[in-house]
């Protein structure tokens, strides 16, 4: 930073071209869980967890990468893999058009971002679902990027972490999407053969084909508080069994109670917890010890 830039007051600096957070969506945010009115900056500084009630707001894949990985030594894996409209699928909208629209609205080009980096100096490969891209659904690109991420972990002897946030398999790619369940699960057999840890983190929401493939195959399965996690959607279940679903059904706390996951981890503790688990599993000294 030059001496001149240092002299400029922060407000002017934030108006530099390319900078995003001038005043985008208003200064205030009303918590959808407890109704508290929060200063947006306070919410963001608290990792988008409500400081009053600890409600975990959904956040983007990039944000999660930023929150978890050390700033140094990151590089992205599989960004070259891009979607094609295999079936020329058209419902109310064309799939090809939908893809373009989601690219604009989510600022991502697919529903999975894979980055190699480190968590508190512990090297990892981290894959994160972008729920804002076609509901985080898993199609060919997601499957291939996932596989490339795991292959990178295999080559470099690194643990693999995946944060799932997905509606399930992507219908618009037909059976190829279903097969991504098989593909992602199969590559994990290689990670297991090489005794490399796979930590699966489930965040709101993790459903369908993503839930029913690699998501529960973690050596350790973690979830953020209050996340909706399940195979079938609550509405489908309600229509099938014609009963009111029990309170808290398919939420993280319910899954913990039923023995389906190892731990619920608050987003604000996630980075520290992951570093701890990874060093424990790999028989390494605690970070900073």
């Amino acid at each position: 930073m030059s001496w001149l830039q240092k002299l400029l007051p922060p407000k002017i600096k934030s108006r530099e071209p390319g900078s995003k957070s001038a005043v985008p969506e208003g200064l205030w945010h009303k918590c959808s869980a407890c109704g508290s009115v929060l200063y947006r900056t306070d919410l963001e500084n608290n990792l988008d967890v409500c400081p009053k009630c600890s409600y975990h707001n959904r956040i983007s894949a990039r944000r999660r990468v930023d929150l978890l990985l050390d700033a140094e030594g990151r590089f992205e894996i599989g960004a070259e893999v891009q979607a094609v409209d295999i079936l020329k699928f058209k419902a109310a909208k064309r799939y090809s058009e939908q893809l373009e629209n989601f690219k604009k609205s989510s600022d991502e080009d697919e529903a999975l971002v894979v980055v190699q980096g480190a968590i508190q100096t512990v090297p990892v490969v981290l894959a994160v679902f972008e729920y804002g891209f076609v509901n985080g659904s898993m199609g060919s690109v997601v499957g291939e990027r996932f596989v490339r991420g795991v292959k990178n972990a295999l080559e470099n002897n690194l643990p693999f972490i995946c944060i799932a946030a997905s509606g399930g398999a992507r219908m618009q790619e037909g059976l190829n999407s279903l097969m991504q369940m098989a593909k992602t699960s199969a590559i994990l057999t290689k990670l297991a053969d090489q005794r490399l840890p796979f930590i699966s983190i489930l965040v709101d929401p993790t459903m369908g084909g993503v839930s029913a493939s690699f998501a529960f195959l973690g050596d350790v399965v973690l979830a953020e508080p209050g996340a909706l996690i399940g195979f079938a959607g609550p509405r489908v279940i309600e229509q099938t069994v014609r009963e009111t679903l029990p309170e808290g059904f398919q939420r993280s706390e319910f899954l913990l109670e039923k023995g389906a996951i190892d731990r619920i981890v608050d987003r604000r503790d996630m980075r520290q917890q992951l570093a701890q688990l990874l060093t424990l599993l790999q028989k390494q000294a605690a970070v900073g010890a």
Binding site: A186, T189, F231
Partner: peptide, 26 residues
């Protein structure tokens, strides 16, 4: 399809399916 029921979810429908995919691959 796999049964979308309360008990099925409670007993880990997702895990059961995912586990089979993993085991059948090898």
């Amino acid at each position: 399809g796999a049964y979308p029921g309360i008990g099925a979810e409670e007993r880990g429908q997702s895990e059961a399916i995912g586990r089979n995919l993993f085991e059948m691959a090898k």
